[in-house]
């Protein structure tokens, strides 16, 4: 946990943009997640005090939505689409291959060096390109286990 130090100025800047109120909770958490790539615990008490919304309620919202992460995510978030079209066109072997190469699992999706996080994602609506894989929102079409493996190798190389 490298970022557990409180940075009120970061949250204040976010609140400035989103507005303050219970109806902005999701937007605020999204902005926090965009900044830190996850939701650090200290943020909850800070936002709770500023919004007058209980911490348990914030935690409740954060754990309902799939995109929020309470654990730090990797620098590269790889998401394998497992929508119908991708599933039918064999997205599972891609996932299996990447998991094996990264040594991650559904329960522990992030590598120890915090470089990679591997997740599945429900349909990205890019069914014509199935199966697809995204790396930090960039879509890679018509993947195969081999192509995914090459993509991963490329990412690893840039990090050397």
């Amino acid at each position: 946990m490298t970022r557990e130090r409180s940075e009120p100025e970061v949250i204040e800047a976010i609140l400035e943009k989103t507005g303050i109120g219970e109806s902005y909770v999701i937007a605020i958490l999204q902005a926090v997640q965009e900044h830190y790539h996850y939701l650090p615990q200290w943020v909850f008490s800070y936002i709770s005090a500023r919004l007058g919304v209980g911490i348990a309620r914030l935690y409740s919202v954060a754990t309902f939505y799939e995109n929020f992460s309470l654990e730090p995510k990797g620098k590269y978030v790889l998401r394998v689409c497992d929508g119908t079209a991708c599933h039918v066109r064999k997205s599972v072997p891609i996932l299996t291959r990447l998991r094996a190469e990264l040594g991650v699992s559904a329960e522990v999706p992030t590598t120890g060096d915090l470089l990679f996080t591997l997740e599945t994602v429900s349909c990205l609506g890019a069914c014509g390109l199935a199966p697809v894989l995204t790396v930090n929102d960039k879509v890679y079409p018509a993947m195969t286990p081999e192509a995914a493996s090459r993509l991963l190798a490329g990412l690893k190389e840039t990090e050397l």
Binding site: F44, A56, L58, F64
Partner: peptide, 14 residues
């Protein structure tokens, strides 16, 4: 409050 969702949902503290 409720935490998590679906079959993983619980009643939980923050």
């Amino acid at each position: 409050d409720f935490a998590g969702r679906g079959s993983k949902m619980t009643v939980s503290t923050a």
